[in-house]
């Protein structure tokens, strides 16, 4: 086993309300270390000694929940977008919303109107939502600041706004393009599952948006943009397992 150039996991509590530094939990750490050689190495080398600096967290345990959108029930009212942006950001915005419906109206995913999904197609409306990806988490891997961590309550991949510099790399790394940078705050706007009570699901007038126990939904919806751009330091960290 090759040696990592630097310790990359910060040991401590999960990020979340009241947590300043941005850490992953001991439980998560143990879970990770139990399944990865890299973790075994880190565990062996560093034991439970906490690291002082905010460091990369490219390996995150699975989230506890995820949003499931039912294409047959969606009526394209976009109350999910509104609830997400208004109740999280204090402003109504389809752009800031962490769930995206409006952009799928016009059946522009490569097929002529009338043949594809969408309001202008066969009427079936797809909402793009965060899959709360399992490892490797594209947005977290791409973030040069290690600002996307696991939320202590839900395990959602959550932006630590204290670390986020608004560079937008995560917005391009997300295969479903469901992250945006808020121009007003210069922070990434990303689904964090609203601490386990997602506003979008609560606002949905047909129950098309549901909050369910986490399952891997990555194959249920084709990515809208390809590619994962891992940060170079993350790539180096991953090399022992993926070289």
């Amino acid at each position: 086993m090759s040696q990592h150039p630097a310790p990359l996991l910060e040991i401590g509590e999960d990020i979340g309300a009241g947590s300043a530094a941005g850490k992953i939990s001991r439980r998560d750490f143990v879970k990770i270390t139990s399944i990865t050689g890299a973790g075994m190495f880190a565990c062996t080398l560093f034991g439970s000694v906490p690291f002082a600096a905010a460091l990369k967290t490219p390996i995150l345990s699975d989230a506890k929940g995820v949003l499931l959108h039912d294409i047959s029930r969606c009526v394209a009212c976009r109350r999910c977008e509104l609830a997400c942006s208004e109740f999280n950001d204090g402003a109504a915005s389809a752009y800031l919303a962490r769930v995206k419906v409006g952009r799928n109206f016009a059946a522009m995913k490569g097929s002529p109107a009338g043949k594809a999904e969408g309001r202008a197609g066969d009427f079936r409306m797809q909402a793009d939502t965060c899959k709360q990806c399992p490892h490797p988490v594209p947005c977290a891997e791409a973030c040069p600041k290690g600002a996307i961590r696991s939320d202590s309550k839900t395990g959602a991949r959550r932006v630590d706004e204290k670390l986020c510099v608004g560079c937008g790399v995560c917005t391009r790394a997300c295969p479903w393009a469901v992250i945006t940078v808020n121009p007003a705050t210069q922070k990434a706007s990303k689904c964090y599952l609203c601490d386990g009570n997602p506003e979008c699901a609560r606002a949905c007038p047909t129950g098309a948006m549901k909050y369910i126990a986490w399952t891997d939904l990555r194959l249920t919806t084709p990515p809208v943009q390809p590619g994962i751009m891992a940060d170079p330091s993350t790539t180096a960290y991953c090399a022992p397992c993926h070289s």
Binding site: E86, D89, A92, S93, Y95, A184
Partner: peptide, 22 residues
């Protein structure tokens, strides 16, 4: 459009009012 519309009321008050309407 990629902008946003500011709501003057607090998030809590606006949420309560929208809930009431719903």
């Amino acid at each position: 459009g990629t902008g946003s519309i500011k709501i003057a009321a607090s998030k809590k008050d606006w949420r309560a009012l929208v809930d009431n309407a719903m």
